[in-house]
Amino acid sequence: MNKHHASKWIKQRSRELGFSRIGIAKAEELTEEKKQLREWLNRGYHGEMSYMENYFEKRTDPTLLVEGTKSIIVLTYNYHNPAPRHPDSYKISQYAYGKDYHWVMKEKLKTLLADIDREIAPTSGRVFVDSAPVMESEWAQRAGVGWQGKNTLIIHPKAGSYFFLGEVLVDIELAYDQPIQDYCGTCRRCIDACPTDAIDENGYLLDGSKCISFSTIEKKGPIPETFEGKMEDWIFGCDICQEVCPWNRFSTPHDEPAFDPHPDLLSLSKEEWQNLSRERFQELFRKSPVKRTKYEGLKRNIEFIAERESTSETF
């Protein structure tokens, strides 16, 4: 099978497995991106995410991460769930509604890799889902599955940005796709809507230490007082920059049962969140990404917002 037929076959098989969009990029060192990453780290924009400093060379050169890599297959998987929430409730990011995406996608990617090995050529490839030093956004752009928006998320003109990214690194040469145009234009809705000013005034640069998602998930210890009055009821993650993005009017609901929320999750009131027990937490978030912040972390986030709401009401 030549590289063009092989690439076509891979894309068709990927769609059968539930992936929305598939692009392929040539594996090579990310020279310009390497400079940008170094500058981002030097500015301290990674906050307490010290793991971003690890494996720097492998992070910017996939041929060092997986020896012999020639092609990077980038795939998107829709998670958009526009189901209405309780009108007076706290918020968690849509991506965390259901089962942990790492496990859902990784199994599908492993199936794809096994199929490539069987149908196209034996390969010593590996699969990745946000769990290794792979610069996903950069490869997504190179593979043409979207452009990096001013909020730094990958956006597709026909699908918005509510999707996960996954990669398959293989040691076979394939037909490579081209990047697509940046359609953000003069729009700055995400920049203006971010309550913590985490997005640079000119866009395309995010100070992770100011991001609500960072403070509610990655942050260890107390949430800084600089976030007071700016959380907008987000207790795990934040979707504000996606909610205001005009391109997300083209987002469609996902069709992955594993991403459906627990039947009670979206109906919880603020009072029920505040009284959340450890047992109830385990029930609601079994196999969920929310487990990452643990019960104590989620309670910390809820209490940070609730205490300040109570104080403001007093005055």
Rank of each mutant, 00 (worst) to 15 (best):
K210R: 15
M52F: 14
P195W: 05
L265N: 01
D130R: 06
L30M: 15
R118L: 10
N42D: 15
A175N: 13
Q178H: 14
E119Q: 12
P122M: 10
A306D: 05
L17H: 01
I155W: 02
K35T: 12
M135L: 14
V134Y: 01
A121C: 08
K210T: 02
E167K: 05
I199F: 04
T226H: 08
K11E: 14
Q178C: 12
S71I: 07
E232V: 07
H156K: 03
V244P: 07
L284I: 03
L165R: 04
A159K: 13
L64Q: 15
E313L: 02
M52E: 14
K230T: 02
P246R: 00
E119T: 09
V127L: 05
P179G: 07
P261V: 01
P87C: 07
N2E: 11
E303V: 13
W40S: 02
F214T: 12
T186I: 15
N81F: 13
E138D: 12
C184R: 11
I73S: 06
P179W: 06
H80A: 12
K58G: 08
L206M: 05
K91W: 02
I22L: 06
E307V: 02
V134T: 04
P224C: 09
E138T: 14
L266P: 10
R38W: 06
G98L: 11
G237S: 10
R286C: 08
E296S: 07
E53C: 12
E138M: 12
R15P: 01
W234Y: 11
L276H: 10
Y51K: 03
H5M: 13
G68C: 01
E16D: 10
E272T: 03
V66S: 00
E167C: 08
G160V: 10
Q178M: 13
Y183G: 09
D130L: 06
N202V: 08
F164R: 05
E136P: 00
K91N: 04
S251H: 06
R21E: 14
L284T: 05
T60D: 10
D255M: 13
A306H: 03
N54H: 11
K58F: 04
L37K: 10
E225S: 14
S288T: 03
Y204L: 10
R118D: 14
I73F: 00
G166K: 06
E272P: 01
D100E: 04
I302Y: 02
E271H: 06
L165S: 11
I22Y: 01
C187W: 12
I116M: 13
A258H: 13
V74H: 09
D260G: 04
K99W: 09
H254F: 09
D197V: 00
Y97K: 09
W273D: 03
P253I: 09
G221Q: 05
V127D: 01
E57W: 13
N248W: 04
P263R: 00
L266Y: 03
I302L: 07
D264Y: 03
A114F: 09
K287W: 14
R59I: 05
D197W: 10
D192V: 12
K220W: 08
S14E: 00
P261G: 04
Q242L: 15
I92M: 06
I305D: 07
L268Q: 02
I217C: 02
Q36K: 15
E33H: 15
E138W: 08
T311W: 11
P289V: 04
R308P: 00
T69C: 14
T69H: 11
I302K: 02
P133Y: 03
K210W: 02
I116E: 00
P263V: 01
I235V: 15
P179Y: 08
D239K: 10
N42K: 13
F281T: 09
I22N: 02
T123Q: 07
